[in-house]
Design a protein around this nucleic acid. Structure first.
Lengths: 355, 355
DNA sequence: AACGTTCTTGAGAGCGTTCACAAAAATGCT
DNA sequence: AGCATTTTTGTGAACGCTCTCAAGAACGTT
């Protein structure tokens, strides 16, 4: 809350009224032109457009939001934790700038704005915080990013308010949109890549089991390994996306009598952990051990060696989410689940199998 | 612009009216309480607050913005280029998540929101784009980030509209706020660090001369080297913050008859370039060559070796900027230039001088 | 006790737009 | 030509809040 009462009003700006006068039509007609409404004579439309151009008119978001049924706002929920904590560990929130890029630019195409809410899942007041944002902004759609994609309390809240939402990087539940890559296919591609290099004993570190993406990646791994007749359940180690868990899983894998010659990690963090442990144990990467990472982040390229990784198309995902949320007509049935193509970026952490 | 006319109105929400009825006071009194206005009897204030709590009332940003003299919005201008282009090169826009963190959280303390505008300086329509954003959002303040901090066209535009603005990472001009670290002192600290390790021949790669920060860093370097009686103008090479320029400057420095034993780069990009060229020429870092970077980014920690760097406190800078813009009273003279403490993060790219 | 101050509260207009509906113009049909 | 229909345009209310200004209550002063 602000400390004082407000200063006097700002100077007058160009409003729809001025445009209407300039073009010699009514307010409503101008509004129709702005909103691409139907039933406007081309001549009138041109006249209005010229007036808009001439007066440099831009509609006020606040007025549109207040008056109309839409706010022209998309709210993106991001976790506060990785941003706050991550800095010291050398990582930022890799999603945010990509979301800005994809989501904001696509939103802009529709006259929308995207804005962020940093949400703290540990605060206990997360739901209240989101509810306040909903009430204050009345966004036309909400984008959920990990680790909030499959949070039931959040999706319940959004459903209760009737705000359409999209989950990014998750196949999601019954409600809302989901935009993700094909995690199973991605895992499969990673296996094929390594198998093609001659690897047969391939380790896999899973993500947190409560995420559908984790299951999918593991399923893709299992299926494809089975197809190649290389599946050894002993080479599957549980992880939870964190560096710590990745390091522990790696140690267990490397301590096996017959250790893997390659490891696929279900997250970028964990892939860095594999690399870290390998370095610690003086195991040469990629000569003695190949590594494939999920979640390609900018840092993957700067490690030594740079990591081969599955890239999740975050910017396109955010763009798709924004577009879906903006163009959704409630009532019309629509495809709720969208799969975007992943990319396998081959760098130098994968090499032919030594044996 | 949207494709169609709008759907019917949303369902009714809790408004200030309901709160007023609940508390048995007038609209205006509720408004006073919300805005922390003066002259409200404690008893009434409590009654209103209880009603707000009970009804879960949250004021509508749009209505406040439309009605009042302030929009409760801070607009942050970020360059589109590094975000779009940077991805493939393995770097994101390192500023954005830190700005979100510092700027958004501090803004929230005042009931404000911060939102971003990705601006393309090469598009030729940059000014129009910013003007449209100004008109549409009517932000109460604008934050400028590199490379827009010292763009005259932008500051002119903002002055014309009477929107307060702040430059981040720049000592800036006559108008607006500037929030920066003490670049000269930072350069000085880098020199002292290296000098303390025994280095006497220290190379310096400058930033683009049109940025005040570049001058300051160079001046700090010169002064401190002079103080240590080690200044050799031949070890100062021009750069422009880019990797390319950094690489070229490094090659020139290393090709000298008596090359430096340490190099200070005026940007993180250029520091990476120094490291890249050193690796290329099989010069051991830090054994044969020490490196200090300006602009500590998450990637600095992941290089081999991790880079010693000056950290610019981006999040605190953004927080300060937000607070200044929100609390500025026009009319009152205020300190326009704010200096925040930097940090010298010593990692493994600096070591005692070999000779 | 009568009056001017200050403190507290309230009433009404207005912010810039869209919505619902009504009026006017153009079109089609018999 | 005359009337029903459709297309195009306009009117007034509403959105939820703050601003301006005025009224009422509480206080002190002579």
């Amino acid at each position: 809350m602000s400390d004082t009462l407000n200063p006097p009003r700002k100077r007058q700006a160009v409003t729809i009224k001025h445009v209407a006068a300039e073009a010699g039509v009514s307010l409503q007609t101008v509004s129709r032109v702005i909103n691409n409404g139907p039933n406007v004579t081309p001549a009138v439309k041109e006249r209005v457009k010229a007036a808009i151009e001439k007066l440099k008119y831009v509609p006020s978001l606040a007025a549109r939001g207040l008056s109309g049924s839409r706010s022209y706002l998309i709210l993106a929920l991001n976790d506060k934790e990785p941003t706050v904590e991550g800095w010291r560990e050398g990582r930022g929130n890799d999603w945010i700038d990509q979301m800005l890029l994809g989501g904001m630019l696509r939103s802009a195409d529709f006259g929308y704005r995207m804005l962020f809410e940093l949400v703290d899942s540990h605060s206990g007041k997360m739901i209240e915080q989101i509810e306040a944002a909903l009430l204050s902004l009345r966004p036309d759609g909400v984008i959920l990013t990990p680790p909030h994609t499959e949070n039931q309390a959040i999706s319940d809240l959004l459903s209760r308010y009737g705000v359409p939402f999209a989950r990014l990087g998750s196949r999601g539940g019954e409600d809302g949109f989901s935009i993700a890559m094909d995690d199973a296919a991605a895992a499969s591609a990673a296996v094929d890549h390594l198998h093609g290099l001659g690897h047969r004993r391939i380790g896999f570190i899973t993500g947190s089991p409560e995420y559908r993406a984790s299951e999918d990646r593991l399923a893709g791994f299992r299926d494809t390994m089975h197809k190649h007749q290389c599946l050894d359940e002993g080479l599957i180690e549980p992880g939870d996306f964190s560096y710590q868990a990745g390091a522990e899983a790696t140690r267990r894998l490397l301590a096996l009598d017959n250790p893997p010659t390659a490891i696929i990690a279900s997250s970028g963090e964990m892939a860095l952990a594999v690399l870290g442990v390998a370095r610690e144990q003086r195991i040469a990467v990629p000569d003695a051990l190949s590594i494939v990472s999920f979640d390609d982040t900018p840092t993957m390229r700067l490690t030594l060696p740079p990591l081969t990784a599955i890239r999740q198309p975050i910017a396109p995902m955010a763009a798709t989410a924004a577009e879906l949320l903006i163009t959704v007509k409630n009532g019309e049935a629509q495809e709720r689940s969208h799969i975007l193509p992943f990319e396998l970026i081959v760098r130098q952490s994968t090499a032919p199998c030594p044996r």
